[in-house]
Design a protein around this nucleic acid. Sequence first.
DNA 1: AGCTTGTGGCTAACACAGTTAGCCAAGCCC
DNA 2: GGGCTTGGCTAACTGTGTTAGCCACAAGCT
Lengths: 196, 196
Amino acid sequence: MPRAGLDPTAVVAAGAALADEVGLANLTMGLLAERVGVRTPSLYKHVDGQEDLNRRIAALALNEAADAVGGAVRGHAGRDALAAAARAFRAFVLQHPGRYAATIGIEPSGPDDPLATAGRRLLDSFTAVLRGYEIAETAETAEIAESDVDHALRTLRSLCHGFATLQSASAFQRSADIDESFDWLISFADRGLRAR
Amino acid sequence: MPRAGLDPTAVVAAGAALADEVGLANLTMGLLAERVGVRTPSLYKHVDGQEDLNRRIAALALNEAADAVGGAVRGHAGRDALAAAARAFRAFVLQHPGRYAATIGIEPSGPDDPLATAGRRLLDSFTAVLRGYEIAETAETAEIAESDVDHALRTLRSLCHGFATLQSASAFQRSADIDESFDWLISFADRGLRAR
DNA sequence: AGCTTGTGGCTAACACAGTTAGCCAAGCCC
DNA sequence: GGGCTTGGCTAACTGTGTTAGCCACAAGCT
């Protein structure tokens, strides 16, 4: 038996890719083993089990999403930044529905959990958007708006997460064009953040 | 063996209650059987299997949510209606996380699927909210705003679904008070729907 | 080179959830 | 009361996750 040259990173990457292809619910240890060219029990040499695999896929997804959103926002401000962030986020979820689904419903075990770190990175990317709306703290307005930032972040996140999740689950039955709806959503959010 | 007097409705109701208690992921046929006082295979006399059970729980949840939201909106308009609908929806999801989770990621098989009917009822409850914002069609403005209603509905739904789902998954790590965040969200949505 | 050792594969086996088959009694209808 | 439908049961099978324990490969030391 020649060695397959696996390591945790490779297994998690393959798992994430497979989840995107077949859906997270259909990601089975056996299927993943077959994909990486190994028998099922061998996976346990690299990963602690399905739950651990799931958490690692989720951390990968959050980091990738943070990269995508952060990169899209860079160099933009105000409504442009908002639109870029929202579009990048939605694109990521639609392109990687499986790994994004892995992020739903799991809690970081503590502040040092890679999951928590990745989540903070993604939130930071969205915080950058809020700077253009004079909600996020700048040097002089720090103490005034502090909790407003949290509220706005949660709202923005709910909006993006909800839309992307629902679309990825094909939950929009009506006839109207989905891209148009998303443009409408961006304008809606822009109005909501601006008029205060 | 005395008969347990079960029927599909009772099984589904027990399943929904159990899902709320232990989480949808931990709702097992064996656990449900134990709960209703019967051996596992007997459940199959009332329900077609786990997928069927899931769909029925989802239909129940959507109908209950539609009742809750519809009832809350009645007699209100504008921002009041929006706040009432959003609060009723969130309260429902938080009180019934398991059955609401059953609604995620499943598609109605056709327009006559009880699931589709229930989904339409819930959307109708939200459509009533939009009437107060002059987006939803009234007699005279029918053709103008038609697709705007769809966009607004999807946006509103994404917002509510996202927030409730994230909170129910304890995904909000930051310190700020969650009820305050939800109030902020309602004001945000009100601004977004009003300023056009 | 040969020996040692850790690691990453493997097979075998088990636990447990979902499901099906097939039996049998409870209760309804005449 | 006798038959039929129905809803329970046991037994058995499948598929998935997981653990135990073995063994070969490859790297490193002497």
